[in-house]
Each structure stands twice: as structure tokens, then as C-alpha cells.
């Protein structure tokens, strides 16, 4: 228990004294997670919309695969990405292993199925009569999609929040493909693992408080955006 207080104290100390290294690690964590979620969102929402609205053969199988993808263990994602990025692997010439880009790739791999699957579920719940009605009123394809998107915006934001939660909590893949390199690919979760293995529990706790605060602020903002329109 004493350790908890000590960790909290240390966290404040680190933030107040503007510890350069912590700042760098925190900014990198933000940059990597936000980029990953952004890309997952940009791909996942149209993909989810398509899967939710279109009807084609093999759609159920595809949905099942994406649903399995929601449970894809990050270490598995990390392992696959590592194999691809190895010097001897197909993308070896790009020399991307142990770079922030590699972490972003792994995080997209684990968050894209979540965003896609949750979005597609939302679109599947839309009443088909609404689609008919909108079409009957003479809406163009784009207008139709826009109206439907507004219809499910709560669920879409929920999908983004879930994707972000996955990404910010992720450590196994980031460790594997990033290598926890100081000043390059060290993010909050991997440094927590490292500090624990060094026996510096107070620093690890301090970092965990910073990570939780970060996750809280971002999730809170997203939730706020999600709930703001409820009154209308």
C-alpha cells in the first residue's frame, strides 16, 4: 500500500518536473495509439458499413472472421508482423522492425477488427424501412449513407472507444515489434514491463498512473462527444 502512494507521488514528481524522458514516452504513446485508431477508423467504418448493408455470398464467413479478429491476441499479431518485417521476411527491405511504424501496424491489426465488427453490427440494426423511406424521398447514395451514419453515430463512437481501449492497453505486440528501444519505440506499457523487470516498482506504478490518466482523458472526451447529443 505504501508503494501505491509512493508511485502516485513519483508520478506527480515526474509530471511537475517535466521529466524529458517521460514526456517523450508519453507523446510517443499518444502518437502511436492515435495514429493506429485513426487508420482503423478510416478503414473500419466504411468496411463495417459495407458489411452491414451489403448482401453477398461469403458475407457471413467474412463477418465470422472479423469477429474472431476481435479476440486476436496482441502477441499473435506481434509475431506475424515480426515475421513479415524481418530482414529475411517479405517486407525486410523496408527496415521497419523496431520502429514506431511497426507498433502502429500491430495496433491496427488488433483494433481494425473491433472497429469494423462493431460498426457493421450497428448498420445491421438499422430498420430496412428507414432505408426505403430515405430512398423514396429521393436521396442520393451519398446522402443515404450520411443519414444512416448519423443514425448509428453512437455505436460508431463506441466502436472507436473500444478500438482505442485495445490499442492503449496493448503491450505484447509493441514489445515484440518495437523492441522497447529507449527514445525510439519505448511506450508507456512497454516501459512499465521493463521497470517491473528492473525491480523499480515505484517508477512502474508512476507510469501506470500516467497511462491511466491519459486513457481516462481520451475516453472521457470521446464519451462526452458521444453523449452530448443525447438531449436532442
Amino acid at each position: 500500500m505504501e508503494l501505491l502512494l509512493e508511485g502516485l507521488k513519483k508520478a506527480f514528481e515526474m509530471i511537475l518536473t517535466g521529466n524529458q524522458e517521460i514526456l517523450e514516452i508519453t507523446l510517443l504513446t499518444l502518437r502511436v495509439s492515435i495514429t493506429a485508431v485513426l487508420i482503423s477508423t478510416l478503414i473500419g467504418i466504411p468496411a463495417g458499413m459495407f458489411l452491414g448493408l451489403a448482401r453477398f455470398t461469403g458475407r457471413k464467413l467474412l463477418l465470422a472472421i472479423i469477429n474472431i479478429g476481435m479476440g486476436l491476441p496482441p502477441v499473435v499479431a506481434g509475431l506475424w508482423i515480426t515475421l513479415f518485417l524481418w530482414r529475411s521476411g517479405p517486407l525486410g527491405d523496408l527496415a521497419l522492425l523496431y520502429s514506431p511504424t511497426a507498433i502502429i501496424m500491430a495496433q491496427i491489426l488488433v483494433s481494425l477488427p473491433i472497429v469494423t465488427a462493431l460498426t457493421s453490427t450497428a448498420f445491421q440494426q438499422i430498420n430496412p424501412k428507414l432505408i426505403l423511406q430515405v430512398k423514396a424521398l429521393g436521396a442520393t447514395k451519398f446522402q443515404l449513407y450520411w443519414i444512416l451514419m448519423k443514425e448509428v453515430k453512437l455505436a460508431i463512437l463506441a466502436a472507436i472507444i473500444a478500438g482505442f481501449g485495445r490499442v492503449i492497453a496493448e503491450v505484447g505486440a509493441a514489445m515484440m515489434v518495437g523492441g522497447n528501444l529507449s527514445g525510439e519505440t519505448r511506450i508507456l506499457t512497454t516501459s512499465i514491463v521493463m521497470e517491473v523487470s528492473k525491480g523499480n516498482f515505484d517508477i512502474a506504478l508512476a507510469l501506470s498512473f500516467i497511462l491511466m490518466t491519459l486513457a481516462f482523458i481520451i475516453t472521457f472526451s470521446l464519451t462526452y462527444l458521444q453523449q452530448r447529443k443525447r438531449s436532442l
Binding site: E24, L27, L28, L30, R31, I34, T35, L38, P100
Partner: peptide, 11 residues
């Protein structure tokens, strides 16, 4: 986007 590009510059 602004945030991400802003950060990527320094890193």
C-alpha cells in the same frame, strides 16, 4: 491530424 503530425515531427 494536427496533433499526430505535430508529434511525429519531433520524434
Amino acid at each position: 491530424f494536427a496533433f499526430v503530425t505535430g508529434c511525429s515531427d519531433t520524434s
